[in-house]
């Protein structure tokens, strides 16, 4: 909307330093820390992309696994015929197209229809892919052989996370971002100042879907062997919702606050108590609703304003005394 402020430049520089440090990680460790960092960067990209749409609109999207799987399959189907970057771009287009179709069908209606539709979307696409594979090919899974190792995937995902952040920042400054803030405040007002609310939501959902599909495409070489149940794993959708909401969705960097601890905790739990994963997820959802309705960042902001007000009061009292 306006020129870049000094504060934004400072945040940008700090971000660049953090990213540069993070990029050096594979030079130090190629084992456990790299592998867990791949997950952190992956979920950072996914959760931020999810928040691009679900943050301002408050529509809880469970379509993440569907977009992710579409991206993964875009790579797996044609890895022997086309160069990898072309496949990633194709995956982004496929994700955006799927998001567009879902958006047109559901985003003009209330939020519940959207949640329900996205809840089954990954399963729907999985059934269709499984059926089509069985019908038109003889294979169940697909091999993805590339020269990429874990560190290449890490770097690509890190670059993607940066791209999602930049896109989010640009959108926030644009007319579209401004329109989304108005819609989040009052949709009736939004319509009466001339915003085509359905179109704005669909556009943003497509951007979000494209980024998630790219994450899926980049992850394909990591799996090596791709089958519908792993590519369209519904858990991805739920984990993204939990992490993003735990962190808080009112700021672009909010989800990050949820991603880092939750990925580490998940790693510990799935190693030691693999059967307790659903219970942990259930408790996480309940904690979000009853204890942290605005996420950790929202809670911190509350505490911060309260402290500031108290200090202002104290100063005022001193003056009058």
């Amino acid at each position: 909307m306006s020129a870049v402020s000094a504060g934004e430049i400072r945040v940008g520089l700090a971000g660049a330093v953090v990213v540069a440090l993070a990029a050096c990680l594979p030079l130090v460790d190629q084992g456990f820390y790299l592998s867990i960092s791949v997950n952190i960067v992956l979920y950072a990209a996914l959760c931020t992309a999810w928040t691009l749409f679900s943050g301002p609109t408050h529509y809880v999207s469970l379509a993440t696994a569907a977009f992710f799987g579409v991206g993964t399959y875009s790579v797996a189907l044609w890895i022997d015929q086309l160069p990898f970057p072309a496949l990633v771009a194709g995956g982004a287009l496929a994700g955006a197209a799927l998001a567009g179709v879902v958006g047109v069908a559901t985003l003009r209606l209330s939020g519940v229809y959207f949640v329900i539709f996205t809840l089954g979307l990954a399963e729907l696409v999985r059934q269709i892919v499984t059926w089509a594979q069985a019908k038109f090919t003889t294979r169940v899974g697909l091999y993805v052989f590339t020269d990429f190792t874990e560190k290449h995937i890490y770097w690509m995902l890190l670059a993607l996370a940066v791209a999602v952040f930049l896109a989010g920042w640009l959108i926030n400054r644009s007319r579209l971002g401004f329109a989304m803030r108005i819609i989040g405040n009052d949709e009736t007002v939004a319509r009466h100042v001339g915003i085509d609310t359905a179109r704005a939501k669909i556009l943003l959902f497509m951007v979000s879907g494209a980024f998630i599909a790219i994450a899926g495409a980049i992850s394909a070489p990591r799996y090596g062997y791709i089958q519908p149940p792993s590519a369209f794993n519904p858990m991805i959708s739920f984990l993204v919702v939990i992490m993003a909401l735990l962190g808080g969705t009112s700021r672009l960097w909010g989800p990050l606050v949820g991603v880092v601890p939750f990925v580490i905790a998940m790693d510990l739990i799935s190693a030691r108590f693999p059967n307790h994963m659903p219970i942990v997820m259930g408790l996480a959802f309940l904690a979000i609703v009853y204890l942290l309705p605005h996420g950790v960042t929202g809670r911190l902001e509350q505490v911060w304003t309260r402290l500031r007000n108290r200090r202002a009061l104290a100063v005022g009292a001193e003056r009058t005394a």
Binding site: V115, L245, P278, I279, L286, I288, P293
Partner: peptide
């Protein structure tokens, strides 16, 4: 209504996983 909708969706997701986890155990 919108806030209740989002809250109840998230809370019942919590119950979903909690109950499912207990039955899996």
């Amino acid at each position: 209504r919108g806030q209740l909708e989002v809250d109840s969706i998230l809370a019942t997701f919590g119950l979903l996983f909690l109950l499912q986890g207990l039955m899996l155990l």
